Measured scan of single mutants.
Amino acid sequence: GLEHMADEEKLPPGWEKRMERSSGRVYYFNHITNASQWERPSG
């Protein structure tokens, strides 16, 4: 619901949600550090 939507907005600075086109899996990418990970970043 709306709570989940708001929660997605609160990623740490630099992080954004991305989708891997080949598999459709969602991952997280940090455009500041060029880091990427499957787990939702905390902090």
Score class of each variant (00 low, 15 high):
R18F: 06
P41Q: 00
I32G: 05
S22L: 13
E16W: 03
G43P: 11
K17T: 07
E8T: 10
M19I: 15
Y28P: 00
F29N: 01
R40Q: 05
A35G: 06
V26F: 14
S36A: 11
S23N: 06
H4Y: 10
N34R: 12
E8W: 03
S42G: 10
K10D: 14
R18N: 02
G24M: 06
S22M: 08
R40N: 06
E16N: 03
R21M: 15
A35Y: 08
P13L: 09
Y27S: 01
H4W: 11
A35N: 08
L2R: 10
R18A: 04
L2H: 13
E16R: 04
L2W: 15
M19G: 02
L11N: 02
W15S: 00
K10T: 13
G43L: 14
M19V: 15
S22R: 13
H4K: 10
R40S: 07
G14I: 02
E9R: 07
N34P: 02
Q37F: 03
N30P: 00
P41A: 01
G24Q: 07
Y28F: 06
E39L: 06
T33R: 04
L2E: 12
P41S: 01
P13I: 08
G24W: 03
Y27L: 03
W38M: 06
M5G: 10
L11D: 09
W15F: 02
E3F: 02
V26T: 08
S36Y: 12
T33S: 06
N30D: 03
Q37N: 02
E3M: 07
R40L: 07
G43H: 12
H4N: 11
G14N: 07
G24F: 03
E8K: 08
M5E: 13
N34F: 09
M5I: 13
D7F: 08
H31K: 13
N34V: 03
V26R: 04
K10I: 11
E39T: 09
R18T: 03
W15L: 00
W38A: 05
Y27Q: 02
G14R: 01
G24S: 05
G1C: 15
R25F: 04
V26S: 06
E9N: 08
N34T: 06
N30A: 01
G43W: 14
K17N: 01
G14H: 08
F29Y: 14
E16P: 00
L11Y: 03
P41T: 01
E39G: 06
W15D: 00
G43Y: 13
M5N: 12
M19R: 13
N30K: 00
Q37R: 05
R18Y: 06
P13K: 07
R21Q: 15
K17D: 01
E20W: 08
M19F: 15
K10S: 13
Y27R: 01
E8S: 10
V26D: 03
Y28R: 00
S23T: 14
R40K: 11
K10R: 12
A35R: 14
P13Y: 14
L11I: 05
M5P: 12
T33V: 04
E20C: 15
N34W: 07
E8R: 08
P41D: 01
S23R: 03
G1Q: 12
E9F: 08
R18V: 07
W15Y: 01
K17Y: 05
R40E: 04
L11K: 06
R18Q: 05
H31R: 14
Y27V: 02
K10E: 14
R25A: 05
E8Y: 05
R25W: 03
S23L: 04
G43I: 13
Y28S: 00
K10V: 12
N34S: 09
Y27M: 03
H4R: 09
S22Y: 10
I32F: 11
A35D: 07
K17F: 05
Q37K: 03
G24I: 01
A6Q: 12
D7V: 10
P12D: 02
G1A: 13
E16D: 03
W38L: 06
E8D: 13
S23D: 06
T33H: 04
H31T: 15
G43F: 14
H31D: 04
W38D: 06
I32S: 06
G43K: 09
A6Y: 12
Y27I: 03
I32A: 08
E9D: 12
G24C: 14
K17E: 08
I32P: 03
E20Q: 13
Q37S: 06
M5Q: 12
A6L: 13
H4V: 13
Q37Y: 03
Y28D: 00
L11F: 03
D7Q: 10
S36T: 14
E16Q: 07
R25N: 04
F29H: 07
H4D: 13
W15T: 00
W38Q: 04
D7W: 07
L2V: 11
L2C: 15
N34L: 13
A35Q: 15
N34D: 05
P41E: 01
E9W: 07
K10H: 11
R21E: 15
R25M: 05
G1W: 10
R40I: 07
E20A: 09
K17I: 10
P12T: 02
V26Q: 05
D7P: 10
F29I: 04
S36F: 13
G43S: 12
S22E: 15
R21H: 15
E3H: 11
G24N: 07
E20R: 05
H4Q: 13
S42L: 11
S23V: 03
L11A: 01
K10C: 15
E39F: 07
W38T: 05
R18E: 01
E3R: 08
G43Q: 11
K10W: 14
S42D: 11
G1P: 11
P13M: 09
H4T: 13
K10G: 13
T33N: 06
A6T: 12
H31A: 11
E9P: 09
E9K: 07
R40D: 03
R21I: 15
R40M: 07
R21T: 15
P12M: 03
G14M: 04
T33E: 04
G14F: 08
P13H: 10
H31L: 14
Q37V: 05
G14S: 03
A35P: 01
A6S: 11
